[in-house]
Design a protein around this nucleic acid. Structure first.
Lengths: 207, 207
DNA sequence: TTCTTCGTGATACGAACGTACCACGTTCTT
DNA sequence: AAGAACGTGGTACGTTCGTATCACGAAGAA
């Protein structure tokens, strides 16, 4: 047989191509031939590593979320060792905003998958989000931690605020995506709420 | 010629069919033949009244937003004559949540169009939203009005809160749509913020 | 070495889609 | 009464898509 090749590596390469072309032309518009061309391989190869388009799309979603998780982790690490709860929360939220090409693509495709999952049962059954509540729980924990150390207003309901912060950030992201709002104004809104929740011992460093 | 027919009426009928089938199978999956079948007319007729699929989709978007505007107005009217600012705001926000089939379809399709517009310039150029800022402005006005009449906390920034309320509501809607959250919990989150913004002279009637 | 298995290419197939074309009856105009 | 314009149906065309098929060379196993 020809050079034994790492299947997982190839799949990653192709999934990357899928994300690129889908980010450019929209998830609905991407065909296997487009993915093949973008990855620089033949149509047959895409078929070979992912037998069906559905499987390719599933894998693409998984790859997309993996990449995003990595990215957020990097952002958190960049915030320095043991940053305060507020800095952590801020890094978490701002990392989700589509401020550059990569996050823009992520936001667009993740939203596309989400919308698709409403009418596509197979997609909805996918481990679509292990982070729907994961992010919510993490944020809630951070807020509670801040409350215990008297860094945040003890009167607010941590979980509700966590939900709201995530929700606000998500819609801000979409608004940026469709060109309805600038990232600056989106960040301002988020800061506004962080200022409300966190006691002002530490002010927000400029972004 | 045959019975002179009201073109606008026919177009409405067909657009309605588009919305129905798109709400069921997803906007990406709807073809002209599906629309024709759903409307109970021949494929040729859909072609006749909308020459191209693109025009049909544009008209569908317009029809969708029109129907939604009508619906919200009705909800507002149902809130009684001259309700307080809080009741008005609440009616506005809750009317946007996908709590029944019609609003569910609206939310799904509007989101689909929005996502589509990111990669489709023709759609982005459409009078997509005359209500992007319209809703924001209206809500801001209501909050300011409430502040002036001492019904709302004068310390909050009306516009920022308006933006956040709309953003939170939007994401709550999507969460409901994908089955990640119940409408009850979404409503609870919204009430939480209304309670925070509005002074508690008037409590929220149960929903 | 021989034979099997793996990776790869090229191409073909059937379905579905948007659109175009042709035909026919009806009704308005003159 | 005659002819033009309108509404409608049926159907065909060209393209594109996902998938299947055929073929072949290279590398591991025996």
């Amino acid at each position: 047989m020809p050079k034994r090749v790492d299947h997982e590596e190839r799949r990653t390469q192709i999934a990357e191509a899928l994300i690129q072309v889908a980010g450019r032309r929209g998830l609905h518009a991407v065909g296997m031939r487009d993915v093949a061309a973008e990855a620089g391989v033949s149509l047959r190869l895409v078929q070979y590593y992912f037998e069906t388009k559905e499987k390719l799309l599933f894998y693409g979603l998984k790859h997309l979320t993996d990449r995003f998780t990595t990215r957020v982790s990097a952002r958190l690490a960049a915030a320095g060792p043991d940053p305060g709860p507020r800095a952590t929360v801020e890094a978490l939220l701002l990392a989700s905003l589509p401020t550059d090409d990569e996050s823009r693509t992520f936001h667009l495709l993740y939203s596309s998958y989400a919308i698709l999952s409403v009418t596509d049962k197979a997609l909805a059954a996918q481990p679509f989000i292990d982070n729907p509540d994961a992010a919510e729980n993490a944020l809630t924990g951070l807020l509670q931690q801040a409350q215990e150390t008297a860094l945040a207003d003890p009167a607010v309901d941590a979980r509700t605020e966590a939900i709201s912060l995530l929700a606000t950030t998500a819609t801000m992201g979409t608004s940026i995506l469709v060109g309805q709002r600038t990232s600056e104004s989106a960040i301002a809104v988020i800061h506004h709420h962080l200022n409300r929740i966190f006691t002002n011992n530490h002010t927000t460093p400029p972004t």
